[in-house]
Design a protein around this nucleic acid. Structure first.
Lengths: 114, 114
DNA sequence: TCTTCATATGAGCAATTGTTCATATATTAA
DNA sequence: TTAATATATGAACAATTGCTCATATGAAGA
């Protein structure tokens, strides 16, 4: 981290805080989780799966979206290991694969309710 | 919520889950928080302010961004009541105005560290 | 086998977003 | 008042994103 001496107002404080900021990789992973939940369709999907698994088709109904749109978002959430799925014949059931995400959602619910 | 009888595979489960999904307004507010933290610059800003306030100029240094870019993002975070600011002469100090956000960040840090 | 149904996926498009650059505002010092 | 400094803001632009539509895959039944 190179700190410009010219512009920096309070170099000591900046240096101190700089040490506390997580490394790039960690920040990127945090951003990815928040970004995943920062879309109404994806958040609704996760909310719909909080208590039980559902098939793609039912998730689409619950989210008022087309199967295709939901499938695209499910792939993103699956790739991120936020969701997992299991096949039963033609039907594929999705469920939550990450307890931290549940905690994040409950905490943001607290936030909204002040 | 109208549930299509044709497509729905398991109507009972869908109806049951539908009742548990928060209303639109709540979901939008949750999305807004996650979206706010779902950008590397904004997340870095909040991380930089976790322990103490900083002026715009120093935040820019800490985030490796121009003052202007930071100022734009600070306005977003201020509008969302995630940050507050105070003026001291020419300098404006920003700090965190929302404890829930701190909890969210700590929880996502847990997540990243498995 | 052929058809149907559930899901997945690629291309294309419109909307959103984050940054840059130029400029404006506001405070302090000269 | 004028100049310098810190911050804010509007316009423009490039990049990203989420959806639609068409098509593909994969499993079950006829």
């Amino acid at each position: 981290m190179d700190i410009c001496d010219e512009k920096c107002i309070n170099e000591k404080m900046v240096r101190k805080t700089a040490k506390t900021i997580p490394q790039k990789e960690v920040i990127e992973q945090m951003v990815d989780i928040f970004k995943a939940l920062g879309d109404p369709t994806r958040l609704k999907i996760v909310l719909a799966l909080l208590n039980q698994e559902h098939c793609v088709c039912d998730i689409a109904v619950l989210c008022n979206q087309t199967d295709s749109a939901i499938s695209h978002q499910l792939r993103i959430l699956r790739t991120m290991k936020i969701l997992k799925n299991r096949r039963e014949g033609k039907i594929i059931y999705y469920s939550i694969d990450d307890d931290h995400v549940i905690s994040l959602i409950n905490m943001s619910l607290d936030h909204v309710r002040h």
